[in-house]
Simulated assay, not measured.
Amino acid sequence: MNLFFFSYLFIFSCISLIFIRKHLLLCLLSLEFMVLSLLFLIMIYCLMFFSSNFYLYVYMMTFYVCEGVLGLSVLVSMIRFHGNDYMNSLFLW
C-alpha cells in the first residue's frame, strides 16, 4: 500500500515538474516532492531488505539536503539579480 502511494507521489511530481515551468519556486517544490518520495521509497527498501541498516538512507538524505540548499541559494540569487523568479527572465532573447 505505501509503495504504491509513494510511487504515485513520484509520478505526479514528475508530471507537475513537466507542466509547471513558469516559476523557479514551483519547479523546486516539484523537485522536493520527487526527492521526498524517493527518500521514502529508499526507507521502505532498507526496511525490507536490510532490516536495520540505514546507511544508504542517511547517505541519500545528505545529498537531498544539499540539493535543496543549492536550489534555495539559486532562487535567492535569482531574485536578487533579476527581481523575480520567472523562468523567462533567465533567457536573454
Results as ranks from 00 to 15, higher is better:
Y8M: 11
V74C: 15
L3V: 06
L72P: 02
C14V: 12
I42S: 04
F12W: 14
V74D: 11
S7K: 01
S7Y: 03
I44G: 00
L3W: 09
I18T: 13
L36N: 07
F49W: 11
M87S: 09
G83Q: 13
E32Q: 09
C14M: 13
L41I: 03
M34L: 05
L29Q: 13
S89Q: 09
S73N: 04
F63V: 04
N53P: 02
N53G: 01
G83Y: 15
R21Y: 05
F54H: 01
L17S: 02
G83W: 15
F91P: 06
M1H: 13
G68T: 03
L9A: 10
E32W: 06
F5D: 05
F5A: 08
F49C: 03
F5H: 06
L47W: 11
L9C: 11
M60W: 12
M1V: 09
S51M: 06
S73L: 08
V35W: 01
E32T: 02
M60K: 09
V35I: 11
C27G: 06
L39G: 02
F12C: 12
V74E: 14
S52A: 05
L92K: 15
L3R: 05
Y57C: 04
F6T: 03
Y55S: 10
M34D: 02
H82K: 14
L25I: 13
C46W: 02
C46K: 02
F4A: 07
I44R: 01
T62K: 05
I15C: 12
F63M: 07
G83S: 12
S89Y: 13
L25G: 05
M43A: 09
F4L: 08
Y59K: 13
N84F: 07
V35A: 09
L47H: 08
I15Y: 14
L47R: 11
I15D: 09
H82S: 07
